[in-house]
Structures are given as structure tokens and as C-alpha cells.
């Protein structure tokens, strides 16, 4: 997933050293950073994002084709780090792109975002924006992925109920071969998990059954997909479909469960502390433009402006932006939820 070009690594390392030399250590940890220099770089924006560089690099280049004088600093970090970076207000990103809808909503709710209006944002459906501060630009379903060899002689589960029955009936085959997010460490996994409990009680039963089969816990979708492809895992639950799509599919089956499938929306917001809010707005417009959407579709999947997806697939449930998402960020709520989940999924 990381860029393998040595030049980039060197640039990243130099930049990291410069950053270290320039001031005190940051209050947050970054994963990767790349500087897309413009030929005539008269202005610059900093984008902090949870999306992998490989996914976003084509978009940044597409943006620079249209705005050749803008240099872009693209920083990849985890959603929690991103959240604290905005709260700290230092290293001030101009644009924040994250898959953690709840944290993004909290930033907007707590007054860390500034409003932005344009023709493109006005055309977004109401469920894909909040307060003119938070804008969704992708639709990414939480999917079940299956290893084709492991399911060679088994029926493909269509619903969670199917899956529960399948796991109960074949414990020896799935023991230690199931993967899912560790909700304690993964923000996205936590979001999917909490949304599951909103949709149906089957989540708890599924967690119990998965716990009994010594389910392995992961930090990231990429890792799970990797292990399913290699055959180490028979199935992985609540994987980010867009990442599964992006990978080689020969060994992997992607299932959108029919009882319901939560759909996460990647969102962008412009923090109050942004130095170049106007350019950040231009970038949002680009993400929502026809060109930007075409690139996004190729890399990640459709966006909210490609709404045909929803009329055809009734089981897709987009996670709604709004203060409801704040509930699961509540300290007590989170503790009690994670306690219940851990006791279900981690069984001796």
C-alpha cells in the first residue's frame, strides 16, 4: 500500500527530518507524507487524510492538472490522530479528509469546521452533507469477503443469519480463520460495529459465534483482505468494500449482505484554522466534479452524486451524518459498548 518509489521515501524522510528540526514534536503521529510540488508553486494546501496515498495520488494530480499553480502537501494519518491534529490546531491542515464519519461530525459539531458553499455542494443530496461544513464524496459499503477455496463446497451466505448458521454448522472449518476489525483500535471498525447494533440484534449473536471460533482481530481492511487472499482466513467481516474492490479478486469473493449493508461515506471538511480555505474549497469542488468523481469511482467507488446505486440496491444503508453519530463517541457509551463487544468476541 505504501508508495514503493525510493524517491518519494527520500523526500518523505527529508521532510520528516526538516519537520523535526524545525520545531517541537507534533501532537500527532503521521504515517506518510508527500509533497506534490507544482511547476510554478505560487500557493500551497495541506490535506490531511486517512486515505492511502496510492488511492489519492491520482486525485491530487488530477486536481493539479486543473490548478497547475497549487502545490499539495498530502499527509496520511489515522482517523484518531487526524482528529487530535485538528483539535490541536497546529500544523493546520487546509482540508481534512476522513473515513471516520463520527469524528468528522464531532469536529463540525464542536465548531472546528468552517462553512463552505458552492454549486457542487448545493447539488449534494441532503444526507451527504451537514451544516455546509461536512461533505461526503464517496460511498463505501462494509462487506463480507470470502476466500473462494474455503467456500468451494459451501453455499455463499446471503444474510447475517445465513452466516451465523454456517459458522455454527462448520466450527472446525472456521476456527481461527475469521477476521474482523478490532473495534478498540480501529475507528472505522468501531463505526461499522456501532451501526450494526443500530440495524439489528444479530450483530451481538454474530459476535458471540465469531468469538467462540477464536476470531482474529485486525487494525486495517488491507491486512484482512491480504490474509483472505492468501487463504489464511476463510472470511472477513465488515471489510471496507472499496479496498477489497481495488485488490486482485481472483481468490476473493465480495458479498454485500442482503439483510443490510452499512455504507460509510468519506467526508471532507475545512477546519477553522485552515490557512487557505479558498483552495480547500476548490479541492472539494474538484472531488465533486465529473472528473474527480470519475477518478474516485476508479479508485474507491461511487460517490453520493452517483445516486443510482441507491435506487437499485435496497439493502444499502448509508450512515447518516448528524449529531446521532456523537452518541457512540460518548466516553461512557464507548466503554460499555467495547466492554460488551470484547466479552463477546474474545473468548478463552
Amino acid at each position: 500500500m505504501r508508495q514503493s518509489l525510493p524517491a518519494t521515501k527520500i523526500v518523505g524522510a527529508i521532510l520528516a527530518i526538516l519537520a523535526l528540526a524545525a520545531g517541537p514534536p507534533r501532537a500527532f503521529e503521521i504515517e506518510t507524507e508527500q509533497y506534490f510540488a507544482a511547476v510554478d508553486g505560487s500557493s500551497e494546501i495541506t490535506i490531511m487524510s486517512t486515505a492511502d496515498l496510492s488511492v489519492f495520488a491520482p486525485l491530487v494530480r488530477g486536481f493539479q492538472n486543473r490548478n497547475p499553480r497549487v502545490s499539495v502537501r498530502y499527509v496520511v494519518l489515522s482517523s484518531a490522530e487526524l482528529y487530535s491534529a485538528v483539535l490541536a490546531g497546529e500544523a493546520a491542515p487546509d482540508l481534512v479528509i476522513s473515513s471516520a464519519m463520527d469524528l468528522q461530525t464531532k469536529l463540525a459539531n464542536d465548531g472546528f469546521a468552517q462553512p463552505f458553499r458552492s454549486q457542487a455542494t448545493e447539488t449534494l443530496p441532503a444526507w451527504a452533507r451537514w451544516r455546509d461544513e461536512l461533505f461526503a464524496f464517496t460511498l463505501e459499503p462494509a462487506v463480507l469477503i470470502l476466500s473462494k477455496p474455503a467456500f468451494a463446497d459451501l453455499p455463499r451466505p446471503k444474510t447475517r443469519q445465513d452466516l451465523i448458521e454456517l459458522l455454527r454448522d462448520n466450527p472446525e472449518r472456521f476456527k481461527n480463520r475469521i477476521g474482523t476489525y478490532d473495534l478498540r483500535t480501529s475507528g472505522l471498525g468501531y463505526l461499522f460495529g456501532t451501526q450494526d447494533t443500530r440495524q439489528s440484534e444479530t450483530f451481538w449473536r454474530l459476535s458471540e459465534v465469531m468469538g467462540a471460533l477464536q476470531t482474529r482481530l485486525y487494525c486495517c481492511s488491507g491486512q484482512m483482505i491480504e490474509d483472505v487472499r492468501s487463504g489464511e482466513l476463510a472470511l472477513a467481516y465488515n471489510v471496507l468494500g472499496s479496498y477489497a474492490d481495488a485488490q486482485d479478486e481472483s481468490n476473493v469473493d465480495i458479498v454485500l449482505l442482503e439483510d443490510y449493508t452499512s455504507v460509510m461515506m468519506r467526508t471532507a471538511l475545512i477546519p477553522n484554522s485552515a490557512k487557505n480555505a479558498q483552495l480547500a474549497g476548490t479541492f472539494i469542488n474538484y472531488l465533486l466534479s465529473t472528473d474527480g468523481r470519475a477518478l474516485l469511482r476508479a479508485e474507491i467507488g461511487p460517490g453520493p452524486l452517483d445516486t443510482d446505486t441507491f435506487s437499485s440496491e435496497q439493502n444499502l444503508r448509508p450512515i447518516r451524518l448528524g449529531p446521532g453519530l456523537l452518541v457512540y463517541l460518548d466516553q461512557l457509551k464507548r466503554q460499555s459498548f467495547l466492554r460488551a463487544w470484547a466479552s463477546a468476541i474474545i473468548q478463552p
Binding site: 443500530r198 449529531p323 446521532g324 461512557l332
Partner: peptide, 22 residues
């Protein structure tokens, strides 16, 4: 003292509005 805030408690405040909630 434990609290399990119902999802609806905050989402009802956001229904059809752009209000911030605390």
C-alpha cells in the same frame, strides 16, 4: 453511575436540522 445514551437521544435533535448538539 453508568450511562448508555440511546442513539435516538441525539439523532432526534438532528432530524431535519443543521443544529449543533451538546
Amino acid at each position: 453511575i453508568l450511562l448508555d445514551i440511546p442513539y435516538a437521544a441525539l439523532s432526534m435533535l438532528g432530524a431535519n436540522s443543521e443544529e449543533r448538539v451538546f
